[in-house]
């Protein structure tokens, strides 16, 4: 029996600009179960990072969570201040260089984070910090080293140690490997996956890379123009995508073998609309080869908890 850890109900994040109010996240509902890795995939501007920021309470004005509820362990959390959420949720960002303070040793930063969130003595905190480093595969004796002494991949390991140090229930990883080389990327992802499995920590993995998603997550949420397009088990979504956008994304991702050489890649025409110029109806309809009248006029609902597409409703 899976237990729900986090639930978003009709989440809406808006930005007030002089050209009107833009919906960066539009009526997003999803759940994250305990111990599962949920991947949110989408192109830049699809609202995936904004969703992560909304959960942890890091949206700065002029943006704000304007509608919807965030439930964490059966409690409303959207009214809680950011500090309170920080105890339960931690974050791993894309660029390990900016998420670590370059002027302080990694040990200091770990100890400080642990002391801020847990009732332990300084010595205990230090011990925990060393254990944490050992767990991510870094020699605990390097606890007094500065961030610049580590390579990019190592730094991201330190960030993961930092994120897990307070034993959060949820880790939000926003493009954690985008700045890394492929060979390092695989190690970091495996590490994140392994540690979270061991502790039963849930993860929201935000990425634009379908391959990373396929190899890491249990379930996938596909976002398009601030809206949820499709959600489901990784295997199901990838083997049998329901939303034409997911199908297009899959088909246009080149695969690592020599089979595709010479042939044309599948391409989705056009580009994702800007948030101030969304078409009526389904946001994907101008690029969709199967769009019909209804898609252009009314926004499709989530059909059987899987995909927001009229085609799917017509089929059932």
């Amino acid at each position: 029996m899976t237990e729900t850890l986090l639930e978003l109900k009709g989440l809406e994040v808006t930005f007030k600009t002089r050209r009107g109010v833009l919906k960066a996240v539009d009526d997003l509902s999803l759940t994250v179960n305990k111990g599962e890795i949920l991947g949110i995939v989408g192109e830049s501007g699809a609202g995936k990072s904004m969703t992560g920021a909304a959960i942890i309470g890091l949206i700065d004005p002029p943006g704000r969570v304007s509608k919807g509820e965030i439930w964490f362990e059966q409690e409303r959390m959207d009214e809680h201040p950011q500090q309170l959420r920080g105890k339960q949720i931690s974050m791993v960002f894309q660029d390990p260089l900016t998420s670590l303070n370059p002027l302080r040793t990694v040990g200091d930063q770990l100890v400080e984070t642990i002391l801020a969130h847990m009732y332990v003595t300084k010595a205990q905190a230090r011990q925990r910090a060393q254990d944490g480093l050992a767990e991510v595969g870094i020699d605990p004796d390097r606890i007094n080293a500065y961030p610049h002494a580590f390579s990019g991949g190592m730094r991201q390991r330190v960030v993961i140690a930092l994120a897990l140090a307070t034993e959060p229930k949820l880790v939000i990883a926003d493009e954690p490997t985008t700045a890394l080389d492929v060979s390092v990327q695989a190690q970091v992802l495996d590490l994140l996956k392994k540690l979270c499995r061991e502790r039963g920590t849930s993860v929201i993995l935000i990425t634009h890379d379908m391959g990373v998603m396929a190899q890491t997550s249990d379930r996938i949420a596909v976002m398009y123009a601030g809206r949820l397009a499709e959600i489901g088990d990784t295997r199901e979504v990838l083997s049998n995508p329901q939303h034409p956008y997911t199908q297009g994304l899959m088909a246009s991702t080149p695969s690592v073998d020599a089979k595709s050489f010479g042939s044309e890649l599948f391409q989705i025409p056009g580009a994702m609309p800007k948030l101030d110029a969304l078409p009526p109806g389904c946001a994907f309809n101008p690029r969709c080869s199967q769009a019909h009248e209804r898609c252009r006029t009314s926004r499709p609902p989530m059909v059987s908890g899987r995909a927001a597409c009229w085609l799917m409703e017509d089929a059932s």
């Binding site: 060979s183 391959g211 396929a214």
Partner: peptide, 13 residues
């Protein structure tokens, strides 16, 4: 190593 660590869309992970 490069080829094996490139992320692939396959369903047996």
């Amino acid at each position: 190593m490069l080829i094996s660590s490139a992320p692939k869309i396959e369903f047996g992970s």
